[in-house]
């Protein structure tokens, strides 16, 4: 509090009373009304019963663990393997998508930072950004076109004689994984690029000069430099993939639900908001603990994200 006040005073001294007031009000509004209160409210809701409006505030309206219990256990007391499996599968899938993105983005980030220059680099940057100006839904749709039964992949695959009946890539989740990996490429490339760019290229050349093979140069020189970037990119890709809703709805096979879809169903199809809130809390807590755990393991801090 004391620090906040001091910061406010320096702000006022540097940019004037008006600017300081504006900053103070806007940031408070953002932190309290837009970020904190909704989460608290959702948390509160997740401990309540799903009551019709006329019963709110009556005796029936008290706190309960019912919503969380029903995530872990079925009514008959057995473990709710269905929902838990979906959550675990969502996390694993998000992890796989993140790994795919790291693998395909690292070389491009490196090429962008140290291989390409001038016009080539500019074109690459534009080329990276343009696909992200196109609606998320349409990007997913593109993969549906690509992987559909009569999509290009099936047509070409069969023409080349690789397989002779259309493969259902949608059901096999191939389209989903591709679409998700595609969706967050940019979020992986730029943090890695920023980290790798700081590397003095002569270091790479020096290492090459000493006869180190390319993979070793990367392992020993470039990768350590890229690590914070990878961590930052991976965090964002993981969180966004685990929290994705559109792509699973459009590209997901009929049998494989994403956990967000379960939440969506509780809200929009079953109109059970407390249950949906509880599931949302479960998703949030799981994702954040997972990311924090990974950050602990790879020794990076939250401050790196978004750089």
């Amino acid at each position: 509090m004391k620090h906040l006040k001091a910061a406010y005073t320096t702000l006022a001294a540097r940019h004037g009373m008006g600017a300081a007031l504006f900053v103070a009000i806007a940031v408070t509004l953002w932190v309290v009304v837009f970020i904190t209160l909704p989460q608290l409210s959702m948390l509160d809701y997740s401990f309540r019963f799903n009551l019709p409006v006329d019963q709110l505030g009556t005796d029936a309206d008290h706190y309960t663990l019912e919503q969380y219990r029903s995530f872990f256990f079925n009514n008959d007391g057995s473990i709710n393997t269905l929902d838990i499996t979906i959550l675990v599968r969502t996390l694993v899938a998000a992890l796989i998508v993140t790994a795919i993105d790291v693998i395909i983005c690292y070389p491009i980030a490196y090429i962008l930072a140290h291989g390409a220059n001038g016009v080539a680099a500019r074109l690459m940057v534009i080329g990276l950004i343009i696909p992200y100006w196109i609606n998320e839904i349409l990007r997913a749709f593109a993969f549906r076109v690509l992987f559909g039964a009569t999509g290009v992949v099936n047509t070409w695959g069969m023409q080349l004689g690789l397989w002779d009946a259309p493969i259902d890539f949608i059901r096999a989740d191939v389209a989903l994984y591709c679409g998700l990996a595609y969706a967050y490429i940019l979020l992986m490339i730029f943090p890695i690029y920023n980290a790798v760019e700081a590397l003095d290229h002569t270091q790479v050349e020096a290492a090459r000069d000493m006869g180190a093979p390319l993979w070793r140069v990367h392992w020993r020189v470039v990768l350590p430099m890229a690590k914070p970037g990878i961590a930052s990119g991976a965090t964002m890709v993981f969180m966004l993939t685990a929290g994705a809703l559109a792509a699973p709805q459009i590209l997901g096979g009929p049998s494989s639900l994403w956990f967000t879809q379960v939440i969506y169903q509780w809200f929009n199809e079953s109109s059970n908001w407390p249950r949906g809130s509880a599931y949302a809390v479960v998703l949030l807590v799981t994702c954040i603990s997972f990311v924090l755990l990974m950050m602990r393991v790879f020794k990076v801090s939250v401050g790196e994200i978004g750089k």
């Binding site: 932190v31 970020i35 989460q39 959702m42 809701y45 969180m239 929290g243 967000t260 998703l283 994702c287």
Partner: peptide, 21 residues
């Protein structure tokens, strides 16, 4: 950390918490 968190929080969670509040 607090300000960057909304980018990381699943959009579904943000939507739900907003309508609930």
């Amino acid at each position: 950390t607090v300000l960057i968190l909304p980018i990381l929080i699943p959009g579904v969670v943000l939507g739900i918490s907003t309508i609930v509040l």
